[in-house]
Simulated scan of single mutants.
Amino acid sequence: MTRTARLLVLLAAVLLLAGVGTVAVLHAADRSGRKDQEQAGGPAVTPGTVTLKPGGRQLLFRSMAWGPHRDEITSVPADRPDGPRTASGLTCLRFHAAAGTGICLQAEHGALTDTYRAVVVDSALHELRHYPAAGIPTRSRVSPSGHLAAWTVFVSGDSYAGTAFSTRTSIVDTRSWRYEDNLESFTLIRDGRPVKAPDLNIWGVTFADDAHFYVTVATGGKTYLARGDLAARTLTTLHENVECPSLSPDGTRIAYKKRVAGAEPDAPWRLYVLDLATMTETATAERRNIDDQALWADGHTLVYALAGDYGADLWTVPADGSGAAAVLTRSAVAPAYLG
């Protein structure tokens, strides 16, 4: 055998071994991902097409299940929340969607530090626009029409429990791309009069329509439910001790977390519902600490996240104070109902 022939044989052997090694690594990674998922006791997660278009009612959320699709937005039929999940490939820390529009809050991992951004996506989960986010993502909402998207980030601090934090809340109109970078520039109205508040914090938008929304306003050591007017650029306080509001589908009630007397300082909240006509508060049957912006699954049921073995689980409770809390699905956070 000539020297050239020997070299060709050696090269072929090296390439063959490299190919076998690659296949083995990929196979092992796939087995490892499936094994992690099986050990977690979670549902099957497979890649596929996820859409925000109208169709059968579906539940979307960030999947926390171990495996190659952890942190991706996944979809399940709304009536089978614990069924097999379809993974979209879109990774988000926070997510919400309505009427074919989604808002995805993402981390961009750098060599020394992470940065964050808010990405508006279309019904196919393709990016339309993105905006820099000044801190750690914490809340996001899309208006029922899909025309407005809002998000809140922690500019400093990482918990609402104490007072040493600062937030920034933004809203964008997906028709004109008019962008309100910081709602703290709106005029605060309390007791019928404009108020100057240097310690203002605002978070947790929930939309009523394409002109109005509700939000938490904090100042002077107190929190308030405020009604926002985009055209007038005002925030008018309505009720005290309301955080992370969520408007019911019929627009008559607000689900929210309320600080209760006697609770631990780092776990101060319980889940309540406020009747906007009478300002009557109703405690839900969920007695644990809730640090989330609840979502209305329908006119009667609230969905929210609680800490779980693999990050977070989604739970439900009736909005009228009856019944008991129940697990909706494990290893999930940031839900949105579509269809």
Rank of each mutant, 00 (worst) to 15 (best):
R3C: 00
T4Q: 06
R6Y: 12
L10C: 04
L10W: 09
L15G: 07
L17T: 09
A18L: 12
V20S: 04
G21A: 15
T22L: 15
A24I: 12
V25A: 06
V25K: 01
V25C: 03
A29N: 13
D30V: 02
G33M: 03
D36S: 09
D36A: 10
Q37A: 07
Q39W: 02
A40I: 05
A40R: 02
A44D: 06
P47S: 11
P47W: 04
V50K: 07
T51F: 04
P54T: 08
Q58N: 08
L60I: 09
R62K: 04
S63Q: 05
M64I: 03
G67R: 11
R70P: 00
D71P: 04
T74V: 15
V76T: 00
D79N: 02
R80C: 00
D82H: 01
D82G: 08
R85N: 00
A87Q: 03
A87N: 06
R94L: 14
H96W: 14
G102C: 15
G102M: 14
Q106G: 08
A111L: 13
T115P: 02
R117N: 00
V119A: 15
V121P: 02
D122F: 13
D122S: 15
S123W: 00
R129K: 11
A133C: 08
A133N: 01
T138C: 00
R141A: 15
S145G: 01
H147M: 10
H147T: 06
L148M: 04
W151P: 01
T152M: 01
V153M: 03
S156R: 08
S156I: 01
S156Q: 07
Y160H: 09
F165A: 11
F165G: 06
T167L: 05
T174D: 05
S176F: 09
E180Y: 02
D181R: 15
D181Y: 06
D181G: 06
N182L: 08
L183R: 03
T187V: 12
R190V: 13
D191W: 04
P194Q: 10
K196E: 10
L200I: 14
G204C: 05
G204M: 00
F207V: 12
T216G: 07
T219V: 15
G220T: 08
G220M: 09
G221W: 08
T223C: 05
Y224P: 06
D229A: 12
L230Y: 05
A231E: 13
A231V: 11
A231I: 00
T234F: 13
L235E: 10
T237E: 04
L238W: 14
H239Q: 14
H239P: 02
H239M: 07
H239A: 11
E240H: 09
E243V: 08
C244K: 10
P249M: 12
D250T: 12
G251S: 13
T252L: 12
I254R: 06
A255M: 06
E264S: 15
A267L: 05
P268L: 07
L274I: 03
A277W: 07
M279Y: 05
E281L: 15
E286Q: 14
R288G: 14
N289I: 03
W296G: 10
A297H: 01
A297Q: 11
T301V: 12
L302S: 09
Y304P: 10
L306N: 13
Y310M: 09
Y310R: 14
Y310F: 14
G311W: 08
T316G: 01
V317I: 06
A319W: 03
G321D: 04
G321N: 02
A326G: 00
T329C: 00
T329M: 00
R330P: 02
A336E: 08
Y337L: 14
Y337S: 06
G339D: 10
G339R: 10
